[in-house]
Amino acid sequence: MPSFARHALEAAVVLGALVGLVAYVTLLERKFAARLQSRIGPYYVGWPHGWLQPIADGLKLMLKEDVVPARADRGVYNLAPIVFLVPCLLIFATIPFAPGLGVADLAIGVLFFLAVSSLEIVGLFMGGWGSNNKYALLSVMRAVNQIISYDLPFIFVALVPVLLAGSLQMSAIVGAQAGLWFVAYPVLGQLAFLAFVVATLAAENRVPFDILEAESELVAGFRVEYSGMKLALIQLGEYAHMLGTSFLGALLFLGGWLGPGPAWLGPVWFLAKALAIFLLVTWVRWSFVRIRVDQILAISWKLMLPASVLLLLATALWVAAGGAGAA
């Protein structure tokens, strides 16, 4: 079965690269945040500049005692990190890193991405519920509220480039941006990108929308009882999801692997764009205070949802009227 073996190998390579990338993205964020806060950040582990810090952190979490609360629902509690992690890694299946370089460039790639990335809430809820902890319970109540509220605007905004490109296939969307990146489309592109970033913040539970982690109120939210490897899996999932969404943003709005230079530079451009979105999100995270749960819902239903629907409608009308996207 050469075809099966090839796919398995591809998946393994992507997964391995992904886990490594995620580990070093945490280092990037810590360094970036440290600079914002006039600190140095990790420095001594892997001198200089803490190059081995993510590995040390991973090892530490693996060696830690795995505590299961006595009153926890063991099955649900133990399963939750896996259920949370799998969709977070699965979203990378449809992301092409360059023409032909990816696990599966599905014809319905964007749809698959959006559908799978919404699944993480299941694992999250299982974790919070199975912990049998009041903080965790409050946290997952918030999580369900928030993720349901923000998945809709997130999906609507992600459909804007789909309309412009006239395809759900990731590579076709990038191909349609050969002339002009979608973010550069007058008004529509910028508004859609802005809405995408805000929805991303909310969907990734980052400050100012991190109410489900909210450690000053809920200690650590849904993962308050987790320790050791299970905590590592949850964190890996969170960062993978964040990174995946950044890749999606780079694909949908910033022209994916398009950029000056030879074709082999494509993946480098793609990674640079995704990391730029990631850093933008990180910058917001380390500058804002947290919004309250009722305010988050109000922003979603009263502002984000109508705005994203209007944006989608406007795009549809523009494309129907023979706008540049069809060209």
């Binding site: 982690e213 500058s287 205070v289």
Partner: peptide, 21 residues
Amino acid sequence: WCMDMGGALGGGATVFLYCFR
């Protein structure tokens, strides 16, 4: 106070560190 509102992993911590500096 900002850490209470913004979290140790967010903008609150940034204000906190500025104030401590």
